[in-house]
Amino acid sequence: MTRIERGTLGALGVLGFLAVVEVAGRTGLIPGSVLPPISQVLAVAATLPLDERFRSDVLATLEACLSGLAIAALIAVPAGLLLGSVPFLERSVRPLVEFLRPIPSVSLIPLAMFLFPASQDAKTALVVYTCSWPLLINTLYGLGDVDPLAKDTLRSFGFGPLAVMWRVSLPSAAPFIATGARIAVSVTLIVAVSVELLAPGDGGIGAFQSLAGSANRIDRMLAATVWAGLIGLAANLLFTAAERRLFHWHRERTGVTA
């Protein structure tokens, strides 16, 4: 199937879905008192970017996600490098990591709300916690995958351990770290929106939704959901594209084509 055929079919699928939902809404199959028709939701979604409040809410969510991810990278990657290069540390810390990692980050929301009275800080802190684990674990995996020959070569040319780490270990672990970041990003949005739903104080997409909900404006709530989906989609595409561009050499080496 050519690209054009795929694209046409995909567009048809989207249009067909919208048509079916719209008809279901108009004929009362989906009761209009509960869910507004999809055309109305999309119309509201189209006007939301003009809404000053909504824009600042989206920015609040994105800010928490991005700063959380950045802080997590600054903590987890160096920690991973340290653990990866000191076997004693790694073997001792790994069981602790395996115990802490399965704790669902959202179960810490009540605790974070105590520790950080400002909801924006609570959000960022939970995002840091959430992102740290996949970044740390993937850094460790990546370091385990480093070609020993490359390390030995550099060593025999007289490079010190830090130089070897900077020139060989980190670059070859980088694709794995990027994968960790991509996994982290999708959960990041879940965590941020959940905190906003529970503590809407400092704004955010979830805060916007809970406000719309208490005003019984389901159309605005769903329109925000549509935007959350678009943001998630954009983030995913961005990270996948960046991974492809930056690490095409890695895919070629390992022969992964997908």
Binding site: M1, E5, R6, L9, G10, A11, L12, G13, V14, G16, F17, S186, L189, I190, V191, V193, S194, L197, I205, G206, Q209, S210, G213, M221, A224, T225, V226, A228, G229, L230, I231, G232, L233, A235, N236
Partner: peptide
């Protein structure tokens, strides 16, 4: 091919934004 764009959108919606 028909449902793929829909799927990718649907899975990108953070489920927390659907809870309300």
């Amino acid at each position: 091919a028909l449902v793929e764009p829909l799927l990718h959108f649907a899975r990108s919606v953070p489920p927390a934004a659907l809870v309300p």
